[in-house]
Design a protein around this nucleic acid. Sequence first.
RNA 1: GGAGGGAUGGCCGAGCGGACGAAGGCAGCGGUCUUGAAAACCGUUGUGGUGCAAGCCACCGGGGGUUCGAAUCCCUCUCCCUCCGCCA
Length: 423
Amino acid sequence: MLDIKFMRENPKLVEAAMVQLGTADAPVAEALALDAQRRQVLQKVEALRAQRRAVSKKIGRTKDPVEQQALIESTRLAGDHLTALEMELRQIESQFRDAMLRIPNLPDPGVPVGKDEHENVVVKQWGEPREFDFTVLPHWEIGEALDILDIRRGVKLAGSRFYVLKGAGSHLQRALINWMIDIHVQEHGYTEVWPPVLVRSETLVGTGNLPKFAENLYHDAEEDLWLVPTAEVPVTNLYRDEILPPGSLPIYHVAYTPCFRREKAAAGKDTRGIKRVHQFDKVEMVKFVEPEKSGEELMRLLDDAEDIARRLELPYRVVQMCTGDLSFTAAIKYDVELWAPGAGEWLEVSSVSNFKDFQARRANIRYRPAVGQPPRFVHTLNGSGLALPRVMIAILENYQQRDGSVVVPQVLRPYMGGLDVIR
RNA sequence: GGAGGGAUGGCCGAGCGGACGAAGGCAGCGGUCUUGAAAACCGUUGUGGUGCAAGCCACCGGGGGUUCGAAUCCCUCUCCCUCCGCCA
């Protein structure tokens, strides 16, 4: 959520930002009009309430029953008027809030301006794609041949875009999760969290997934609970409606969760393999920091994600999103992409964003800089560290050998009982 | 799932229709005293909205209602506790 005061003072700037984001349909003008209306009605309501309070106090003090009755009669009509106005105010406020919740975050001034993903900027590349002296296979062929990935049976159980890992495939996944969390906790300074993966609507509003992106989420109507699309949702909301005491920041959390995405919009895209599925696993990093620090914290968060790719010795590149490809909530965002030789493409395995105070406003997450000082909104950031199925794809495709076996990355071997080759 | 009891400021806890943004205690902060500290004493301490400002308004778990007036009465939701049932 944007700061309404900032919007009032800089309407042109906000409108211009919406054009850059390619979301000129965002209800900025509507929100501003509702805000003006809201304040107008609010002033009337407050004046009437002040008046009512004064009369009521007088009624309480009046001893003479006749005089008291006269006062009650005189103010009854004003009361009805007030009730009507209050109802109007409530309606305006709810419309106002709804409009505010549908306006995206403003891009950081440093974000390259661009129309869509074609204008994203590759800012870094690490590692050399391996040269193969045999025909490289895509991960689904490698996985099926080794009997560690069973897509057909996954589909039997749950439908398209579901899969089953088996034997060393399952073990590799478990190893990756444990190893990644250990690195982030022991070497990057994060505190581990194991949150619920079913959450309430308010939780999803806090991170910006609702109200706008309900169609991408799984929802249990009976209990009104939602399956999280990422650990970002429960972990960011950990401190919703709280004022963190002085000295609390920065807070770094890392969490593993399964992630659930309906991806209705993506039907028909990336249908082969496990690149785009409805349920996947992910290790996610979330930071809560002071506003002045979020810029540098973003770069460190990005490096923490890259570090995982480097340790796995997987070639990767870092791409900065242009304005047109920025997510709804991010002010600035980088993707880490692993090279997948089998499919011949770069796979997004991490999306590292600074949301500044956008989520903090929605979720009402504040901190007190020092005793006696007023609270301020924190800045939130997050990044995958990393998304499992695509790391799995990259490992299978990069580490494949002529005979169909797959070498286990050095760093994972202690987590796989010393196994060095899956065959 | 069934029966009952609760939710008040950072914490504990009073208030059950008007004098309550809310007694009292604790904690915190400032001060007096002290070589320093403790004790004692005095003072002070919530969040937000709105307005140029003085100020005004809102908030006693959330939302709605009754009333001239609600922390207090009614409805509803959420959460917590006790007992029974069920359960990995």
